[in-house]
C-alpha cells in the first residue's frame, strides 16, 4: 500500500474518531438522566437559576437537534459561552492555551533527543553498567504519579533547599525560565522511561538483525551503521509511543498546572468541572480529543514510512 493511500484511509478514520468523540462528549455531558439543569445548578437550586440554565442549554429541544446545532457551531469555530463568566469560551481558551502549549512544546523538545540518546547509549553495551542503571531507574520511575513526584520535588528543591521557585504563581513563564524547571522535570519523568526503554529494545533488536549484520559484512560500520541502518528500524514503535506520550502529557499537564499554579488549559478544565460549566468542559474535551487524534494521525503516518509493511488501517 502506498503512502498517499494509507494517509487517505487513516485520515478518514481520524475524522470518524473525532465525530465519535464529539458524540461521546455530548452524551456524557448533556444527555444525562434526569434534568441536567438541576444537576448543574447544584448547590444553588433556585428556580430562576435553573430556568436560566435551561434557556442557556436549550434543554427544551430534543437532544439530537441540540447535538447537530452544537456540531455546526463547532465547525464554524463557535464554542459557545461559558455558563459562569458569560464570556465566549474561545477567548478563555486562547488566554490559557499559551502556557500549556509552551509546557508541552518544551517537554517534547527536551524529551525526544534525551530519551532516544539514553536508549541508544544503553543499547551500546547491553548488560553494561549504564544499561542496568538506565533500565532500573526507568522501571522504577515509570508508574510514579505526577502529583506525588511534583510535591516531593517542591518539598526538597523549593522549600528545603530553596533553589527553585516552588510555584509559578503570578510569574511570567517566558521572563522567568527557572519556574519551568520543576514542572518540566515532573512532565519528563514518565515518558522518558518508556521512550528510552523502547529505543533500547529496538536498537538491540536491530543490531542483532540480519540486515544490520549484512550491512556490517559489506563494510558499513560506526555511526553510519548505527544511525542509517539500525536506528530507522528501531524508531517505528518509538514514534507511536511518542503519540501516546502526548496523551499522557495532556493528562500530566492538568496535574502539573494544578500543583504549580500555572494558568493553562488544565487549570481551565479543573475549574470548569468544579463549577459544572458544561459548555466549557465540552469545548475543552473536543479540543484535547482533536489534538490527540491529529497527533496519532501524524505518528501513524511517520511510522508507516518507517515500517512500510504495516499497510493496514487500524
Amino acid at each position: 500500500m502506498s503512502l498517499p493511500r494509507y494517509a487517505a484511509g487513516r485520515s478518514l478514520l481520524g475524522l470518524g474518531q473525532v465525530a465519535g468523540i464529539t458524540a461521546i462528549v455530548f452524551v456524557l455531558t448533556e444527555a444525562l438522566p434526569g434534568d441536567a439543569a438541576v444537576v448543574i445548578a447544584g448547590d444553588q437550586p433556585d428556580p430562576a437559576r435553573i430556568a436560566a440554565i435551561r434557556a442557556d442549554l436549550d434543554l427544551d429541544r430534543p437532544a439530537w437537534q441540540r447535538y447537530l446545532d452544537w456540531l455546526t457551531d463547532l465547525l464554524r469555530g463557535d464554542l459557545g459561552v461559558s455558563l459562569i463568566s458569560q464570556r465566549p469560551i474561545v477567548d478563555r481558551l486562547a488566554d490559557s492555551a499559551g502556557a500549556t502549549l509552551l509546557l508541552a512544546a518544551v517537554t517534547l523538545l527536551v524529551l525526544v533527543p534525551l530519551a532516544v540518546a539514553l536508549g541508544m547509549l544503553a543499547a551500546r553495551r547491553e548488560g553494561g553498567r549504564l544499561d542496568r542503571t538506565v533500565s532500573a531507574v526507568s522501571v522504577a520511575l515509570y508508574a510514579v504519579p505526577e502529583f506525588a513526584l511534583a510535591i516531593l520535588l517542591i518539598a526538597v528543591f523549593g522549600v528545603r533547599l530553596g533553589w527553585l521557585p516552588p510555584t509559578a504563581f503570578g510569574a511570567d513563564l517566558l521572563a522567568q525560565p527557572s519556574v519551568l524547571v520543576l514542572p518540566l522535570l515532573v512532565l519528563l519523568a514518565r515518558p522518558i522511561c518508556t521512550i528510552s526503554r523502547l529505543t533500547r529494545a529496538g536498537m538491540i533488536d536491530a543490531l542483532r538483525g540480519e540486515h544490520v549484520r549484512h550491512a556490517r559484512r559489506l563494510g558499513i560500520t560506526g555511526s553510519r551503521l548505527w544511525l542509517r541502518h539500525a536506528l530507522p528500524g528501531a524508531l517505528a514503535p518509538v514514534v507511536q509511543q511518542l503519540a501516546r506520550t502526548t496523551d499522557w502529557l495532556l493528562g500530566g499537564v492538568i496535574v502539573v498546572e494544578a500543583v504549580f499554579v500555572i494558568p493553562g488549559l488544565g487549570t481551565a478544565l479543573v475549574d470548569a468541572v468544579a463549577t459544572r460549566d458544561i459548555p466549557t468542559v465540552q469545548a475543552l474535551c473536543v479540543l484535547v480529543a482533536v489534538t490527540t487524534v491529529l497527533v496519532n494521525l501524524a505518528a501513524d503516518l511517520v511510522a508507516f514510512r518507517l515500517a512500510p509493511r504495516i499497510g493496514v488501517v487500524r
Binding site: I21, I24, L28, D247, C285, V288, A289
Partner: peptide, 21 residues
Amino acid sequence: RPLDLTLAVPSLLLLILLAAT
C-alpha cells in the same frame, strides 16, 4: 471500534469527564 475510540482520548481527561457527570 468503540473501544478504539476511548483509547483515542487521554485517560485522565476521560476520568475527569466521567467524574464530572
